[in-house]
């Protein structure tokens, strides 16, 4: 059970002179729900981009289910089993909600029957309470609905590890509840989830483990309660005492 799914070894990401990610190492075992927090500019999104293949790390290695994935293009990383959402939603605007769901479905399982993929898409849309929008262009969706659609697309990929980048940001409280139950459900399905959020309440409530980044470096990794009282974390959030 405690087989390691995702393993980051000393990841460094440099943009010119700016070190956005500074020797970050951690591993993820599924099913685990991990919160990743840190002040603005801590390197959370950059690290996500490195893990998902959108950026090639300057240094370090990443293994996913025993396979090395650092520097691989995103579509390869997804197929290996790591999926992510975007902080700012990236719905395929002039395509319908169903088409948005079919893209990952067909990309991952090109040989599957189209009908089966569609049925699965309906199931997921229903779970996310947006089944009635199936034929709507996704650009017509509200902000919260787009977040839900992104989560739906992720389920079509059925990845072992999921990174959710700010899933609650700008979402109506009632729709946030839908996202909550989604996270619980996906977790119960046995997937590992990395949850990035500024919503501390949600992170502390949902996470079994917390990872804290500051200035690109990992400054704490452990049980939420222990991390909360870690002096380094308090300092990162509140600034240095004079």
């Amino acid at each position: 059970m405690s087989e390691i799914n995702l393993e980051l070894n000393s990841i460094v990401m440099r943009f010119g002179g700016n070190q956005a990610v500074d020797h970050v190492s951690f591993s993820v075992v599924k099913p685990q729900l991990i919160g990743m927090i840190g002040p603005n500019g801590a390197g959370k999104t950059t690290l996500t981009n490195v893990m998902s293949g959108m950026l090639k790390p300057t240094n370090g290695t990443i293994y996913l289910n025993g396979r090395r994935i650092d520097g691989h293009p995103p579509y390869d990383v997804v197929r290996a089993g790591l999926g992510r959402t975007f902080q700012i939603t990236r719905a395929l605007g002039r395509m319908t909600v169903m088409e948005n769901m079919m893209v990952p479905g067909l990309a991952i399982r090109p040989r599957a029957r189209q009908g089966d993929i569609e049925a699965r898409a309906h199931e997921i849309l229903d779970l996310l309470t947006i089944d009635h929008l199936t034929n709507e262009l996704s650009r017509a969706l509200s902000g919260g609905q787009r977040k839900l659609l992104e989560l739906g697309r992720l389920l079509m990929l059925d990845p072992a590890v999921i990174i959710l980048d700010e899933p609650f940001a700008g979402v109506h409280p009632r729709l946030q509840e839908t996202i909550y139950s989604y996270i619980h459900r996906v977790h119960e399905d046995g997937k590992a989830i990395i949850l990035i959020s500024h919503n501390m309440g949600a992170v502390f409530e949902l996470s079994q483990r917390l990872i804290v980044l500051n200035n690109g470096a990992l400054i704490a990794d452990g049980e939420p309660q222990a991390v909360k009282s870690d002096p380094a974390v308090i300092e990162a959030y509140l600034g240095e005492d004079e």
Binding site: M54, P73, P74, R90, L92, R94, M95, L106
Partner: peptide, 25 residues
């Protein structure tokens, strides 16, 4: 065909399409 669907996904957002498993290359 599914290829047409992927092409349209690419048109809408190449990065997003890639993150959804579409081999954009």
């Amino acid at each position: 065909s599914p290829v047409g669907l992927f092409l349209r996904a690419m048109r809408e957002d190449e990065d997003a399409a890639s993150a959804l498993g579409v081999n954009v290359v």
